[in-house]
Simulated scan of single mutants.
Amino acid sequence: MTRQPSLRQCPITAEVARRMRARRKAIQMTLVDQAAAMTEAGYPMSHTGICDIEKGYRRDLPIRLIVAAAVALHTRVADLLPDPGSCPTCEGSPPLGFSCNACGSGGSR
């Protein structure tokens, strides 16, 4: 049976996963090495778990996981998080009087 990415993955989760993978590739770290480093940082993780995140099989990522990933990837937590207003759904500006279901941003009057 082929696994499908989560149909309800939060756009923020998808962006964090994309940034984690990009950083891992940039420093030429394997999934196995990242998993070991995250486990050492206090968040036990397998290489298949990281692969699942990168492929979109996880809907949400706990902050503890993101912190451990930042430690493992030798970067800041802020570097793994999307910039404010960078929601891929509303691009930081939902229509006037509405709020974005993806990021929670509210349209100003």
Rank of each mutant, 00 (worst) to 15 (best):
R64G: 09
D52C: 15
S105H: 10
C10D: 06
K25G: 07
R76Q: 10
Q28F: 00
S46K: 08
A14Y: 03
D52Y: 14
R3Y: 13
C103R: 11
I66E: 00
I53R: 04
E40Y: 13
Q34A: 10
A35E: 05
R18G: 03
S108Y: 10
F98D: 11
Y43H: 09
I12V: 07
R59N: 07
L61G: 01
A72G: 11
D60P: 00
M29L: 14
L96E: 02
T30F: 13
S46L: 08
A14N: 01
G56D: 01
P82T: 05
E54P: 07
V71P: 01
M20K: 08
H74V: 10
A68P: 02
R76Y: 07
P44H: 12
R76I: 04
L96S: 02
A41G: 09
R23V: 01
G107L: 03
D79S: 08
T89P: 06
I63F: 12
L65S: 06
V67M: 10
F98P: 04
S6I: 11
R8L: 14
P84L: 14
G85Y: 05
I50M: 00
S93G: 11
I27Y: 06
V16A: 06
Y57A: 12
S93V: 11
V16K: 03
D60V: 07
A72L: 05
A70Q: 06
T13M: 00
M20P: 04
A26V: 00
D79V: 06
H47W: 12
T2C: 08
G107C: 03
R18L: 05
G104L: 14
P82W: 02
G92M: 06
L96V: 02
G107S: 02
C103V: 11
P84V: 11
K25M: 09
E91I: 11
G56I: 00
C10H: 13
A26H: 06
S46I: 05
S86Q: 06
Y43Q: 09
K55V: 09
Q28K: 00
T30M: 14
C87D: 03
L31Q: 15
T13Y: 00
G85N: 05
C90S: 03
E40V: 14
G97R: 12
L73S: 02
P5V: 15
M38T: 00
C103Q: 12
C90N: 05
A78H: 01
I50V: 09
Y57H: 15
M45F: 12
G104I: 12
M38Q: 04
A35Q: 08
R64Y: 04
A69V: 02
I53L: 11
A26P: 04
I12S: 05
S108F: 03
V71E: 03
C10E: 09
Y57D: 07
M1H: 07
S46A: 12
R3A: 14
M38F: 02
